[in-house]
Structure formats: C-alpha cells, structure tokens
C-alpha cells in the first residue's frame, strides 16, 4: 500500500472528525462509529477528490462504502488508475 496516500487520507479524515487522531495503523476503524456525520463525509470526499484530482463513481458515495480509511484508499487507488 502507498503510505503517502494513506497518510494523506488520515490527515484529511483527522481534520474533519472530532475524535482521537487516527494513524495509518487504524485503517479499519469504522469512522461512522467515531463521529463522522454525513456532512463530515461530504467534506472528506470532496477534499480527497481535490487532492487526488479524480472523481469517484457516484455508486461509491455512500457512507457504508467509504466508512474506513482502508475503503477510501481502495476506492481512490482504483479511481486514480
């Protein structure tokens, strides 16, 4: 896995969710259980799309599809390819 991308995703998640800082060791933590609201979700997705200069498919725009750092990583890697 690309550590830089994982760190960037963690940075953006941490900026938007008021909870303990997530590190790349916690990529499986369910973000909706640590306080990610629907508005936080929108902010995170938009920030990631701007950072990685890609737009993820609308079918992935569900919290259940992107509720962990790992899922975000997988979707965006796919998107960037």
């Amino acid at each position: 896995m690309d550590k830089n991308i994982l760190e960037k995703i963690c940075q953006i998640v941490n900026l938007n969710i008021e909870s303990e800082e997530l590190g790349i060791e916690q990529i499986d933590v369910d973000l909706s259980l640590i306080g990610m609201s629907s508005i936080d979700f929108i902010r995170i997705v938009v920030a990631l799309e701007e950072e990685f200069e890609c737009q993820i498919p609308d079918s992935k725009l569900l919290i259940s599809e992107l509720n962990t750092v790992l899922k975000m990583y997988q979707v965006f890697i796919q998107c960037m390819r």
């Binding site: 953006i12 900026l15 938007n16 902010r43 938009v46 920030a47 701007e50 950072e51």
Partner: peptide, 10 residues
C-alpha cells in the same frame, strides 16, 4: 482547495 481552507481554519 477545501483542504487548504480547512488547514487555515485549524
């Protein structure tokens, strides 16, 4: 970018 804006807010 939204990330830069958020950092400024932070």
């Amino acid at each position: 970018k939204i990330l830069e804006l958020q950092k400024q807010v932070d």
